[in-house]
């Protein structure tokens, strides 16, 4: 993780070099690079426009129509958004997404900080970090399906609980509990990722600050509150944005949690699942306009949260 240190310094160096030369204007390299700008940038830009930017605009456009994907589109104006406001299923989906975003986010960051502190100067920390990191690389459906067995009424967890004398273990996989279980799995699998990022930031805090604080009798909490947190704040604020984006996307773990049913109960839907189920229902008429409206709402959610987080978490930069 030390690689974070030299990179910005080098960047600054090369940029300073670039600006020094741009003044002359007759630099052959400068001319060469100006000529090559469009040929180099255009292919990616074209691809990105056709398959990314235009679809976003198209989503916004069909969110104003009623459309089953085959027949004619009929104008609905903001009717689809009105339908979303009135739809209890959408309320549940939105509530679930917000729960993961806010509650899940706070829990994840609390655990990530706890793990970062515990990992400081620990024997085998790099190995531990790698093991904690790995789950974020795995398709969450693997965990969802595994949970279907691990928490099966006659699976390992309940067997262990029975040995321990618990006769009435919770119904882990019931539709009422599945959303809490999904949240727990999301938190567990993301924690290692955020721990790694926060660890890299905390490693850069000079140790003499802690030594000075210790000499002045600061408690562990005091050191965390007055040194660790303020000096890693920028990274935490970026992580908060990353968390926002990734939690709005949550889809596959909802699709395959447990294995009894691949048609998840409405109680565990997220906004991504709502879009999927409205646009590609198993036995109903597709509502592409409604799906697009829900998609636009989730995009707005990312935008609003990102802006709010950047605003709320902005601090004057601390030099150290």
């Amino acid at each position: 993780m030390t690689a974070t240190v030299p990179a910005p310094a080098r960047t600054r160096g090369s940029r300073a070099g670039a600006s020094r030369r741009s003044g002359t204007g007759r630099d052959p390299l400068e001319r060469q690079q100006r000529r090559l700008f469009w040929p180099f940038a255009a292919p990616a830009l074209l691809f990105y426009t056709v398959l990314f930017l235009v679809p976003i605009a198209y989503s916004a456009y069909i969110s104003l129509y009623k459309w089953d994907g085959m027949g004619e589109k009929t104008w609905k104006g903001f009717g689809n958004y009105q339908t979303l406001i009135d739809d209890p299923t959408f309320h549940t989906s939105l509530e679930n997404t917000l729960t993961i975003l806010v509650v899940g986010g706070l829990v994840t960051f609390a655990i990530a900080f706890a793990l970062t502190l515990a990992l400081r100067e620990m024997w085998g920390r790099m190995f531990a970090r790698s093991a904690l990191f790995f789950p974020c690389l795995v398709n969450a459906m693997v965990f969802g399906a595994s949970a279907g067995f691990i928490f099966h009424p006659s699976g390992p967890v309940n067997t262990a609980l029975r040995w321990a004398g618990v006769d009435d273990p919770p119904k882990w996989l019931s539709t009422d509990n599945s959303f809490s279980m999904i949240t727990a799995i999301v938190i567990w699998s993301a924690t290692g990722y955020y721990t790694t990022i926060i660890m890299a930031a905390v490693d850069q805090i000079p140790p003499y600050l802690y030594e000075a604080a210790e000499l002045e009798g600061a408690s562990a909490w005091g050191k965390f509150r007055h040194i660790t947190l303020p000096l890693s704040w920028d990274v935490v604020s970026v992580c908060a944005v990353l968390w926002t984006v990734s939690s709005v996307k949550i889809f596959e773990i909802v699709l395959l949690f447990g294995t009894a049913n691949t048609n998840p109960s409405v109680k565990s839907w997220t906004t991504a699942m709502y879009v999927y189920q409205s646009a590609f229902p198993q036995s109903a008429v597709p509502k592409l306009g409604l799906a697009a409206a829900a998609a636009i709402v989730s995009l707005l959610m990312v935008a609003v949260f990102t802006l709010a987080l950047r605003r709320l978490m902005r601090r004057d930069p601390i030099q150290f």
């Binding site: 990105y48 679809p55 989503s59 069909i62 991504a272 592409l288 989730s298 995009l299």
Partner: peptide, 25 residues
């Protein structure tokens, strides 16, 4: 180039469900 960099960076914040319906169609 700064504007284009920003346009690409904003793509990082777009969840897949926004693109799935248009791309399917």
């Amino acid at each position: 180039s700064n504007a284009l960099t920003l346009v690409f960076a904003m793509g990082l914040g777009v969840p897949g469900q926004v693109l799935v319906v248009p791309l399917f169609v």
